[in-house]
Simulated assay, not measured.
Amino acid sequence: MTPAARTQAAIDLLDAIVAAAADNGAAADTLIARYFAQRRYAGSKDRRAVRELVYAAIRLLGERPATGRAAMIALARTDPAIAATFDGSTHAPAPIASDEVAAAPGIAPAWLIERLAASGLDDAEQRALSGRAPLDVRVNTLRTTPDTVAADLSEPQPIAGLPDSFRLPAGTDLAPFAGRLEVQDAGSQAVTLAARAQPGQTVIDLCAGAGGKSLALAAAMENRGRIVAADVDRARLRRLEPRASAAGATIVEPLLLDAGREAEALADLGGAADTVLIDAPCSGTGTWRRNPEARWRLTPARIDRFVATQRHVLALGAPLVKPGGALVYIVCSLLDAEGRDQVDAFLAAHPGWQAEDLSLPLGRPHGHGVRLTPAHDGSDGFFVARLRAPC
Rank of each mutant, 00 (worst) to 15 (best):
L237S: 03
D164R: 15
M1E: 14
S154D: 15
T144C: 12
A216P: 02
P300D: 07
A194S: 11
Q198K: 14
V203R: 02
A210M: 07
Q184T: 11
T202D: 12
D12L: 13
N140T: 09
L255Y: 01
P254W: 04
P292N: 05
P146A: 08
N140H: 03
G131I: 00
D23T: 15
R238K: 14
D258Q: 09
V54W: 01
L320S: 10
A247T: 00
I330Q: 01
L277P: 10
N291T: 12
A247Y: 01
L358M: 07
Q198L: 14
V321D: 10
A216S: 15
G187H: 03
H366P: 08
T275C: 15
G209Q: 11
I73L: 04
M221V: 02
T85Q: 12
A33H: 02
G211M: 05
A318R: 15
S130W: 02
G212W: 03
G171H: 03
E264K: 09
G324K: 12
V101A: 14
L153I: 10
Q342A: 15
L14T: 10
P365D: 08
P65N: 07
L335M: 06
P300L: 09
A37Y: 11
A247I: 04
V252G: 00
L316W: 14
R77M: 13
A118W: 12
A385R: 01
T148R: 15
T78W: 07
A21Q: 00
T30E: 15
A230H: 06
A178I: 08
I303S: 09
R115H: 04
A128W: 01
V328W: 15
G25S: 12
A318Q: 11
Q310I: 06
E100Y: 07
R127G: 01
L334D: 13
V18F: 01
T78G: 12
